[in-house]
Amino acid sequence: MQLSAQDLTALWITFKLAAVGTSILIVICTPLAWWLARTQWRGKIFIEAMVSLPLVLPPTVLGFYLLLLLGPRGPIGGFFEDIGVGHLAFTFTGLVIGSMLYSLPFVVQPLQNAFAATGQRVMEAAATLRASPLDRFLTVSLPLARRGFLTAAVLSFAHTLGEFGVIIMIGGNIPGRTQVASIAIFNHVEALDFEAAHALAAILVVLAFSMLFAVYAINRRFKVVGVGQ
């Protein structure tokens, strides 16, 4: 089972995509999830429904709209074209944006649940112990939500590994630039090169399983140590 250079590149792009997308998502979703967990605003269900949309939409629908948005004639792609950066369709940046949207609910929901589970009481206790709002967030909310962060990061990463529909719509299938592992597998199968497909597929299965296994194991350990909540 020997991987071709092109397959190795596809794997590398897949990892880079998952790592970059997950990192940015965690940063963006932390305040969003915090706000969703705390707000009493009625309109919050609208935001929640929006965030969950990628769970049920066919990835091709998401990819189609993204292609329109990010392409040279789209409002976002057109803007970048105008300022000389170039539009975003068929680029790695475009892939990152697409995979972030696709994995959004997998990050927001665990974080929101973790923040909600922290409860108001310990935050009030921290306030009576002279901690400012930011201090309380950093020293109480974040550590208590760490299982949520771990879950969010792993789900987002693993989910991006398996992404297909969105990427094929907005990234095309450019070997060495936007071709990711799942699409490379598809190509191998089309070409009836089952051996190459097996190699890549097996790698993805093992990776995804190991990551999920690690999450469940770590969550279990946390519980035993008594970090609770």
Binding site: E124, A126, R130, A131, V140, P143, L144, V227, Q229
Partner: peptide, 30 residues
């Protein structure tokens, strides 16, 4: 004056210790 700027101590009905910190670290927090 927001709570964190008031020189007070508060003991809640249910002990609201930080579950991720040992007793000593809880006590050092404030």
């Amino acid at each position: 004056l927001p709570t964190h700027k008031r020189p007070l101590g508060y003991v809640f009905q249910e002990a609201s210790l930080f579950p991720h910190l040992k007793a000593a670290a809880n006590m050092r927090y404030g």
